[in-house]
């Protein structure tokens, strides 16, 4: 490979790299905060799910540690799963979380894949007087 040819390929590589990396690149803290704000948009849905669960057992509470992937380019949250080893809440509340976060989309998407871990804490309000 001649010097000229090698330079050409390197230039092509840089251009390709630049194209592949186009888009927002958040710092980890910003990625976390933006994702956290995104999760908060599902608080009402979670409360609804929790309220329904409390109808069967008014004492349900605990923490749910959820992990998921934020897809690069699309910002879609995928592969949500409960880390049962780090959760204290019963599975029904883990299901609430998985359903709530699945399908959310971070906007704008980040050029990097995000691998997130969040902890939800479920606490029942005092039962209203009948």
């Amino acid at each position: 490979m001649t010097m000229t040819r090698m330079s050409t390929w390197l230039a092509a590589g840089v251009v390709a790299s630049a194209a592949a990396c186009a888009g927002t690149a958040r710092a980890p803290e910003a990625y976390r905060d933006d994702t956290s704000k995104l999760l908060e948009t599902r608080t009402a849905q979670l409360q609804q799910c929790y309220g329904d669960a409390l109808k069967t057992d008014a004492r349900l509470s605990g923490t749910v540690t959820v992990q998921f992937v934020v897809e690069p380019k699309t910002g879609a949250i995928t592969q949500p799963s409960v880390d049962h080893g780090k959760s204290t809440a019963p599975p029904v509340l883990g299901d609430c979380v998985v359903k709530a976060v699945d399908g959310l989309t971070l906007a704008p998407p980040d050029r990097h894949e995000g691998r997130a871990t969040f902890v939800y804490e479920f606490t029942p309000n005092p039962a209203p007087a009948s």
Binding site: S17, A53, F122
Partner: peptide, 24 residues
């Protein structure tokens, strides 16, 4: 070159627990 130049995944954790309250 493109992938290496773009960097790998970013792992992060929520800064604090996200509270969820429910009314029995």
């Amino acid at each position: 070159v493109a992938v290496l130049g773009c960097g790998g995944p970013v792992a992060f954790q929520g800064q604090s627990t996200l509270p969820v309250t429910g009314t029995p």
